[in-house]
Structures are given as structure tokens and as C-alpha cells.
Write a protein that binds this DNA or RNA. Structure first.
Lengths: 179, 179
DNA sequence: ACCATAAGCGGAACGCTGTTCCGTTTTCAA
DNA sequence: TTGAAAACGGAACAGCGTTCCGCTTATGGT
């Protein structure tokens, strides 16, 4: 469905896009996922308008920044079982300075992030869950998407709150799924 | 710690405070918990400044609006067991047009809502959980606050999303807590 | 090497938010 | 009735994501 464009992207555009991805990655680590777009633009040495020439929405930039790590997580699905994979998924969400929080914050941003992350990972989760169900180790009445949503939700607000351990709650949830 | 004020509240102040509580309740139902303060003020027929004379923060107004229902929920703890009480707690969060979402949205607002709701309900949850643990029906390694946080998180984004059933995930979580 | 053209850029401007500030109005007790 | 204190209304502020548009810059044809 993607037609080859008449002309390729201009060189400065390509350079700026990469700068933005690098800058956003750095700023997200330093100031959290909810850092203002102006700060990302400044870090990249571009104007704010340039962000929106490359990414339709702030959420799309977030998705692009973590694309590689999401791909890695998808690949890990070939080597580990459901439990370990879920815990890695949780680690990813928690350690990225409020990624889970950002997903839950506003309705419209959620759609973008959901499309970028969960939809990508859902097949992997489905396969791993299928393995457990087939082996009789887990119940068959929970869909992979539900599971991922639940795990994602449990990760919210977990960073920097020593009263709440998301990992432990996820383990409890997984225990509740055993057949 | 609350000293009796030299003079009681002025009559118009008392009236406006009640108007604000009523208006906020109506607006929250109509437009969700994240409705703008200006809309609440307009509905109440007051200026925006008046809101802040009565409630230090938007989140405090939210807490005040739902205070009665939180009290009811606390009272219900005398009549039902943990499982039912948790499900009622979840119903409360889900049906209030994104209360759970609002709690997770921003860090500072969360503190207020947490103080207003969770701290109030924590003793009830603790007692009910204690009953289950003493009866040997549940594990003793989960603290009531963790449980409430987890349940609250599972409720996020549940309203109007037919792909995700928070109640079911909460039941799975509870199943994971059985001894 | 030049130049026309279109792609890309920067940042001011817009619309929205919660919150603060302050001149005006209202209440209440003396 | 009146003066002082309390409360009010809404303009103003700061910060957000996003849009817009005049200017700059890269690029393919000459």
C-alpha cells in the first residue's frame, strides 16, 4: 500500500529525523516520557515544527524511539516461556520512566501507543500463551490482549514507589492464570 | 489538629461550596472526571477563582465529590467478604467515568487522590484481607495497599473498551492470591 | 555552475489546561 | 448603618501539544 515516493527524502530531513530520535531517547531517560516536546526539539537542535514534519503526533515519536526495543522484546519471545517474557515486558514498561503511565494518561495518545506496541507484541504473547494452554498449565479463558493490558496497567506508577512492586503483582496475576 | 476558626464560614461561601460539589458531580457524569475546571465553575454559576478558594487543587474537589461514596464503600466492608468488597471497589472506580484513569494521569494529582481514597479505604481492605489470611484461604505476603493499587490499576481504561474486562482480570488476580 | 522548484525548517501563534492574583462585591457584627 | 474582613469573578499567567506560514536549503535539469 506504500507507493514509492517520486523523490527520496531530502538529506537534511533524514539527518533531522535521526537527531530527533536520538534527542528524544536521551530526554526520555533524563526527564521521563512526559518531557515537553520543546525540550526534545531543543536537545535535537531543531524547531518544534520539525518534530511534526516527521511524526504526526508526540505519541508517534515515542513509538518510534522505542521501536527497536519492542522488536527485541518480540524476538525474545522465541527463546523464553510466557512467564519470563511477561516479566521482561514489565521491565521494559517500568524502566522507561513512565511509559506505562504515558499510555494511560490520555485517550488519544493511548491509541497511538497501543497501535505501536501492543499490536506488535500481541502475536508473540498469543503464541506463548497458547503453549501454556496446550500444555495444560494455564486456563484458556484469557485472551493475550487482555493479559498484556492487565500487565501494562499493573506497571503504572511502579517506578520510584517503594510501596508498590509491580513485578510481584504481575506474578500474582500469572499465578491466578494457572490451570 | 484542625483549630476551630474564629468565625464560621460566610453564608455565600457555604452555598457556593455546595453548588460546586453538585455541579462537579453532574459534570463528571456528563463529561468525565477530566472535565475542565471552567466547565465546573460555569455549571455552578461561579468564577474559576471560587473553586480554588474552597479546594486547594482540582484533585481535592474530585476527592470531595466522591467522599460520600467512599464512605459508603468503607461501610460496606462490615457486611461482605474481601472478594465482594474488592469487586465493589472496582465498580466504583470503573463507573465513575475514568476515576482510575485520573488517578494515574499525573504524579501530583495522584498524591491527592491517593490520600483521599486509598488511605481512607486501606484499613477496611486490611481487615478483610486479614480475615482471609487467618482463615488460611489467602497468602500472607501481600499488603493491603499493594492489593488496592493493583486493583485500581487494573481498572484503568476499562470503561468503554470491550476488548478489556477489568473485573475479569481482578478475579484472576484474586485467584492468584489464594493460599 | 546555475537556477527554478519544491521540500523542509524555525519559531511565533493558537487553543487548551490548571492555577494565581487582585480589584470589586458581599456578608456580618458592632 | 457602617467598616472591615471574607469571598467573589474573571482576567492574567505559565505550560502543554499542535498548527501555520514566511524563509531557507537541497536537488535535479539545464
Amino acid at each position: 500500500m506504500v507507493s514509492t515516493p517520486a523523490r527520496p527524502q531530502r538529506s537534511d530531513a533524514r539527518r533531522n529525523q535521526q537527531s530527533l530520535l536520538d534527542a528524544a531517547g536521551a530526554v526520555f531517560v533524563r526527564a521521563g516520557i512526559d518531557a515537553p516536546v520543546r525540550e526534545i526539539a531543543r536537545e535535537a537542535g531543531v524547531g518544534t515544527g520539525t518534530i511534526y514534519r516527521h511524526f504526526p503526533t508526540r505519541a508517534d515519536l515515542v513509538v518510534a524511539v522505542f521501536q527497536h526495543q519492542v522488536d527485541s522484546l518480540a524476538a525474545v519471545g522465541d527463546d523464553v516461556a510466557l512467564r519470563d517474557w511477561i516479566l521482561r515486558f514489565a521491565d521494559f514498561l517500568v524502566t522507561k520512566h513512565g511509559l506505562a503511565d504515558a499510555m494511560a494518561s490520555d485517550r488519544v495518545g493511548f491509541e497511538r501507543l497501543h497501535a505501536g506496541f501492543v499490536v506488535r507484541l500481541e502475536p508473540i504473547c498469543a503464541r506463548l500463551l497458547g503453549v501454556e494452554v496446550s500444555a495444560g498449565r494455564m486456563r484458556d479463558d484469557v485472551r493475550p490482549l487482555e493479559l498484556m493490558r492487565a500487565v501494562g496497567n499493573l506497571c503504572i506508577g511502579a517506578e520510584g514507589d517503594d510501596e508498590y512492586d509491580a513485578r510481584r503483582m504481575i506474578e500474582v496475576l500469572l499465578r491466578g492464570l494457572t490451570a
